[in-house]
């Protein structure tokens, strides 16, 4: 039975810390416990937040284009991240 894993471009919700209840995209998986996340607004892509996985709620949503860019070693712009999050939140019911 396989283990579910966080993937770059995945939408996550902060559950603990001063950024509580904000949505972010995963930029990088540092190790099984820590991720780098950004939302393009509160946390910019060039200064992403290092966050513990257990302080986040993971969603099933992944922004494919941003995921692909990250896999190829490219960094998305703040605008791209911000608008991708907004678009996701507007168009879908976020299942947590």
């Amino acid at each position: 039975m396989a283990v579910g894993q966080v993937t770059p471009g995945q939408l996550v919700l902060s559950r603990n810390g001063r950024d509580q209840n904000r949505y972010f995209l995963v930029l990088k998986i540092l190790d099984p416990d820590y991720l780098l996340i950004a939302d393009g607004r509160y946390r910019k892509v060039d200064t992403p937040k290092k966050k513990k996985v257990k302080h986040l709620q993971l969603t099933e949503l992944v922004v494919a284009e941003i995921g692909e860019m990250l896999q190829q070693g490219k960094t998305p712009t703040n605008t791209q991240v911000d608008s991708a999050i907004r678009q996701l939140l507007e168009t879908v019911e976020v299942g947590l």
Partner: peptide
């Protein structure tokens, strides 16, 4: 990408994750 293999033993899912 989103699902990976795993260490296994006394627990079914142990470290490390095996992508």
């Amino acid at each position: 990408r989103q699902f990976v293999g795993h260490g296994i033993g006394k627990k079914m899912h142990e470290e490390p994750q095996v992508p």
